[in-house]
Design a protein around this nucleic acid. Structure first.
Lengths: 336, 336
DNA sequence: GATTATTATGGAACCGTTTCCAATTATATG
DNA sequence: CATATAATTGGAAACGGTTCCATAATAATC
């Protein structure tokens, strides 16, 4: 493996000069530039990243920290992130991070420190699994972080999150607008701020229209197909009179539709179903699922761009508008 | 940030000794071990990975190379891989690799070299996007590779793939066994060996039972919901007489069911549908989807373990049995 | 053409480890 | 107890870059 010294010798220049052409910092005359480039090509020279990082303290790597419960980040989103990084020649290290627990009250911070020590210029903290207090503390010590799917008020520039309250509200309003009064609801976990916001937005929309949702018509799900299926069955057994069902994500909506359909319930004529996320799958359920669009990829891209600005002094424009949008398909009908 | 020299000074030992306790290579007496550990703790010493890699040529990192067309690797599988790596303290770098093309005949190899140069001890090559010739060449120069979802005959120990021929055969046989003679088929792309094997297994099973599949009843899909939906519509318009439909993956099966159901076709009573993959979704379609189980995660885990053996001289047991298994649910019925 | 400002260049010192060898100390052997 | 053997230990040298400073070459100015 050729080193910078080999190149310098072959090109007949000093090592400093070679370093300058590699990094592009510092001035090099055109003649020497050519000589050095030729020598590098001849020797198939490839700079050693460890040596570069050791002496420059730059790693050209960012870390993605998230836990299982951060949600299902699709491979597509991950690819999107990688693509965004590629032009800057920075790589992505992913981790399966840990949440704090009674036994390990510092678990998340420790797993993050591990990532940082591994050699990351910056970090994407994905999801809301890390307590806000810890995030603020972390940011003091290591400012190159960006939050994806989490909103910390004190860090507006670094938070890339969707307004789940508004989205939940829109969902509720849509069902009300269509004349539904008996509304059932399969929620997600309540241990993240997302879930709470969406929940409150939804409930508030109903309440402001003087509709209250009966306890029996709320089922605590967990975003999985499984719970959507079980939830729909449960609700149907409890009180089969509801005319609309809101699900906290498309996966549970899809399996809820299956569950109800297989019991002979006609969707949407007997029960309207509204999902949340607008995943690919939503267009291909039967009937096609009305849902709330959540621009995951857009948020991910913005977060990455902000991080690049932070880490590498770039000045990319960042889009912070992630609006809730209702996608009307055929699973919700007007009640007459 | 404390260095090894600070630790050495505080502990009153030489730097070599400190290095030995960090790495665990070489012998250290119990007394000094304690002294050094205390000093490290007092200084909150964390070894600098760049320096370690520079001098040891070990990176404690492996790369995952795959292209968009490698298929949808779920976040769950990725997490599984990370988990498998964690006990060995090795990180994962993911890339969105490139396929060869007319304009870039070396694209895949170049993107792999980039990964290697970044600092990987080994590589998971995921999918069959890299020509076999290139893989063999790569392995000569960089033997620490493992193939996931690809089978190169000359590298049996490093190939972790599913026998798609057998699986396709089982699928075909299952439909035949249930008395189906008019069989439709939504395929995947034909540009990977997977797809071809599955295809031939399926066709062979039919042929050996003296059933031939009409050209009009084959639709070339691409594994997406979209093509599954379109394919089912297409087939139904062509010749609505088929009694069974085989789909190359569960996603297209799911959307095919939706498409047919929305046309008023009773699944499974009028048309049986058989999927492939056994994704989570398969249990929650309506009706629940019969399918072929593909043990993706199990293969991924085996591949990782093999790679750990290769890179770090470990001796983990590797499971190479990835058998095709039919999962009978309710989307295929016996024709009477 | 002399003087000054600017650009280009070489290379020592440094980044923080690992590794190897020589030296020391402890342990075993006869 | 002397000697052979094994276990510990210190630290120089090396890994392959970047950075900074002193110096040389070039361009600009009067």
């Amino acid at each position: 493996m050729a080193t910078i010294r080999d190149v310098a010798k072959l090109a007949g220049v000093g090592i400093g000069t070679v370093s300058r052409v590699i990094s592009g910092n510092g001035s090099v005359s055109n003649k020497t530039l050519i000589k050095v480039n030729d020598a590098m090509a001849a020797l198939k020279f490839i700079p050693n990243t460890s040596a570069q990082s050791l002496s420059s303290k730059r790693f050209n790597t960012i870390g993605l920290w998230g836990t299982k419960s951060s949600g299902e980040m699709s491979r597509a989103t991950l690819t999107k992130i990688e693509r965004e990084l590629q032009p800057f020649d920075v790589s992505l290290i992913t981790t399966d991070g840990e949440r704090n627990s009674v036994n390990h009250p510092n678990a998340s911070r420790l797993s993050i420190d591990k990532l940082i020590n591994k050699g990351c210029d910056g970090l994407i903290i994905w999801g809301s699994d890390m307590p806000e207090f810890d995030i603020l503390q972390l940011e003091k010590e290591f400012p190159n972080i960006v939050l994806l799917n989490n909103n910390v008020k004190a860090m507006p520039e670094k938070s890339f999150a969707f307004n789940h309250y508004d989205a939940g509200y829109i969902a509720g309003q849509h069902l009300v607008d269509n004349g539904h009064k008996e509304i059932a609801y399969i929620s997600g976990w309540f241990d993240t701020s997302d879930a709470n916001e969406r929940h409150h937005g939804f409930i508030d929309a109903l309440n402001e229209n003087n509709i209250s949702i009966h306890e029996n018509l709320i089922y605590r799900g967990d975003y999985t197909f499984k719970k959507g299926f079980e939830g729909a069955n449960y609700l149907f057994n409890q009180e089969p009179n509801f005319t609309a069902l809101f699900c906290a994500n498309d996966q549970s909506a899809m399996s809820a539709i299956s569950a109800l359909s297989s019991k002979g319930v006609d969707i949407p004529n007997e029960v309207s179903v509204l999902g949340y996320d607008n995943m690919n799958i939503a267009s291909y359920t039967n009937p096609p699922l009305s849902t709330i669009n959540v621009p995951v990829q857009k948020m991910a891209v913005s977060a990455v761009r902000k991080l690049i600005n932070l880490c590498y002094g770039a000045d990319l424009e960042i889009d912070y508008s992630f609006d809730a949008k209702l996608i009307e398909r055929q699973s919700v009908i007007q009640l007459n």
